[in-house]
């Protein structure tokens, strides 16, 4: 297993709150890695440290290393804007820009990065996000008219448009119905051919269905990390077992 991201001794928090405690973890290239754990254990904080958006919250701090292809994204010469381009993110609630057209939502990133052939990139990204057929005749419409699942795929297209290498998903299906959820899951499985995927989910079955590797977090610590099948059949740590079997607390 070749790793895309190597997290070494990562600590993070907000002011005096110490959220992530000494996390070390390898995220394999072209694989889906799921992050599971109870609410408030630091899953979102963790993925936000992987593309340097955690630090955008006032008072937030990070210590430790996150090596992207071997290079620490927290080095003083690393460009956070470039890190965020290479490591894209899709959030829990679909958050398209409502005042922009569907087209402009996807074109936004490429334009900022000075991409020439924006039309082609938008079409490609919408196709990769399995949304093209559904929106190609109404690209100038507002995304507000789309269903929740379509809006989420639009956000995925928007993330893909800047040609990232890693995509972070933070509970991308929690606002979606089962059909829309199945589409996103299918899409994630397709995307891993070309991208490295990290997905935070509170849905155990979703992790079991789509992730190759699973990490279990508890109160800011990494309790267990391993192949998903192993975690769900035979976890090594009693706390993991209690959590995934719903016997927690």
């Amino acid at each position: 297993m070749e790793s895309k991201i190597e997290v070494v001794g990562l600590n993070a928090g907000f002011g005096s709150t110490h959220v992530l405690k000494n996390i070390s973890l390898s995220i394999p290239r072209n694989r889906v890695t799921a992050i599971i754990g109870p609410s408030g254990c630091g899953k979102s904080t963790f993925v936000r440290c992987l593309n340097r958006i955690h630090e955008l919250v006032p008072g937030a701090w990070v210590r430790g290393k996150v090596l992207l292809d071997g290079k620490n994204i927290y080095d003083s010469d690393a460009d956070p804007v470039e890190v965020r381009r290479r490591v894209g993110m899709v959030f829990q609630k679909p958050n398209p820009f409502p005042a922009m057209s569907i087209f402009d939502n996807v074109a936004y990133g490429p334009r900022i990065h000075g991409v020439k052939d924006v039309h082609r990139v938008v079409e490609e990204s919408l196709k990769k996000a399995a949304l093209w057929e559904e929106v190609k005749h109404r690209l100038s419409h507002s995304p507000v008219s789309l269903s929740g699942g379509q809006q989420q795929r639009l956000c995925i297209a928007r993330a893909l448009a800047v040609k990232p290498e890693v995509i972070l998903f933070d509970e991308p299906c929690s606002a979606l119905d089962p059909v829309a959820t199945a589409k996103i899951e299918e899409l994630v499985l397709e995307l891993k051919e070309n991208y490295t995927i990290v997905i935070v989910t509170h849905n155990m079955q979703q992790a079991a269905r789509i992730a190759d590797y699973t990490a279990f977090f508890l109160m800011g610590e990494l309790v267990e990390f391993g192949e998903t099948a192993e975690i769900f059949e035979n976890p090594r740590d009693k706390r993991t077992e209690d959590y995934i079997t719903g016997r927690f607390g």
Binding site: M204, Q205, A208, F232, E233, N234, P235, T240, E241, I244, T245
Partner: peptide, 9 residues
């Protein structure tokens, strides 16, 4: 019920 871990075993 989709048992996992010790329940699955």
């Amino acid at each position: 019920q989709q048992p996992v871990a010790r329940d699955l075993r």
